[in-house]
Simulated scan of single mutants.
Amino acid sequence: MIKILKYTEYLYLAVAIASIYKIITLWGVAQQETYIFIFFAVISIAMFLFRRNYRRKFEKRKQDNQN
Rank of each mutant, 00 (worst) to 15 (best):
Q31W: 07
Y10S: 01
Q32T: 12
I20R: 04
A16V: 04
R52D: 02
A41N: 03
N53I: 06
S44K: 01
E33I: 04
F58V: 09
Y12D: 10
M47K: 12
L49I: 11
Y21V: 15
V42H: 08
L26S: 10
R52T: 04
A18C: 14
L13Y: 08
V29P: 00
E33Q: 15
K22Q: 13
Q31K: 15
T34Q: 01
S19W: 02
F40N: 06
V15Y: 02
Y35S: 11
E9H: 03
F40V: 02
A41Q: 04
R56M: 06
Q31V: 06
I17G: 03
R51P: 00
A30M: 14
V42I: 15
L13N: 06
Y35F: 12
I45Q: 00
F37P: 00
L13W: 07
V15P: 00
V42L: 15
I17V: 14
K22A: 13
F50E: 03
R55M: 06
I43W: 07
S19G: 13
Y21C: 15
M47Q: 09
I43K: 04
F40R: 02
F37I: 00
V29N: 09
A46T: 11
A16H: 02
V29Q: 11
S19V: 06
I36Y: 11
F50L: 08
I38D: 01
F39W: 11
R56E: 09
L11M: 11
L11F: 08
S19M: 12
L13I: 06
R56Y: 05
I43V: 15
V15E: 05
I20K: 08
G28E: 11
A16F: 02
V15R: 08
I38N: 06
L11N: 03
T25G: 07
V42Y: 09
A41E: 05
F50G: 01
R51I: 05
A18I: 10
V42N: 08
Y54P: 00
I38L: 12
E33T: 05
A46L: 11
I23Q: 04
I17D: 08
Q32S: 14
E33M: 13
T25Q: 10
M47D: 02
K57I: 08
I24V: 13
I20N: 07
A14Y: 05
I43S: 09
I17P: 00
N53C: 06
Y7I: 01
Q32G: 09
I23Y: 01
Y35R: 13
I38T: 12
T8L: 12
R56K: 08
W27K: 13
